[in-house]
């Protein structure tokens, strides 16, 4: 390459993102646990069933079942508690701001002026725990921001307020 553009060296900066103000509803931990249990069970039960029925392959089927059960069990106990501590959300009059993940942390900011739709959804399991998901989409295929551990009443209030603010904000959102 003839014209190599020398990278400008940079110094570190101490700027940080502050956590969003609100935690998820406490019940989200139980909901996450249930999901993890279901995911584990869906794998383990067929393996165990087949292992019981098919004698020659028994050890080949039961060994993975045990491994999956152990991993699933540990994850069920440990992960939701960590997640709960990290998951946060905030809605200001300018933007929706969330922090999710644990090992892979993810902060998302969607400005009010770019929000196109506000959806509230309740999954079948989620409903058992009295929780709702609010999903805010923008014109970007990658710009959606979801808050999935809100108490139903909170979710309705937030969705209503979001609708009011986005309606009042001009612009075509692209």
């Amino acid at each position: 390459m003839k014209r190599q553009e020398a990278p400008v060296s940079e110094q570190a900066s101490r700027t940080e993102l502050r956590p969003p103000t609100h935690r998820y509803d406490r019940r989200v931990v139980a909901w996450w646990r249930t999901q993890l249990i279901l995911m584990t069970v869906v794998v383990v039960i067929p393996l165990v069933t087949l292992g019981v029925l098919i004698a020659p392959a028994r050890s080949w089927l039961l060994a993975p079942a045990v491994v999956v059960a152990i991993i699933g069990g540990v994850a069920t106990i440990a992960l939701p508690a960590w997640w709960y501590r990290f998951h946060r959300w905030e809605v200001t009059d300018r933007a929706v701001y969330t922090r999710t993940g644990y090992f892979w942390q993810n902060w998302r900011i969607a400005p009010m002026s770019r929000i196109q739709t506000v959806d509230t959804t309740r999954g079948p399991v989620q409903r058992l725990f009295g929780l709702s998901t609010i999903k805010v989409t923008t014109a970007s295929s990658a710009g959606a921001v979801a808050i999935d551990g809100l108490a139903e009443a909170d979710a309705e209030r937030v969705a209503h307020e979001l609708a009011l603010i986005t309606d009042a904000t001009p612009g075509d959102a692209t």
């Binding site: 570190a12 942390q105 993810n106 998302r108 900011i109 969607a110 400005p111 770019r114 710009g143």
Partner: peptide
């Protein structure tokens, strides 16, 4: 044309700043 931000940090990225 930027209509939102995401900041991502994996466990290893976080350790290395």
């Amino acid at each position: 044309g930027i209509i939102g931000w995401q900041v991502r940090q994996s466990f290893f990225q976080r350790r290395k700043g």
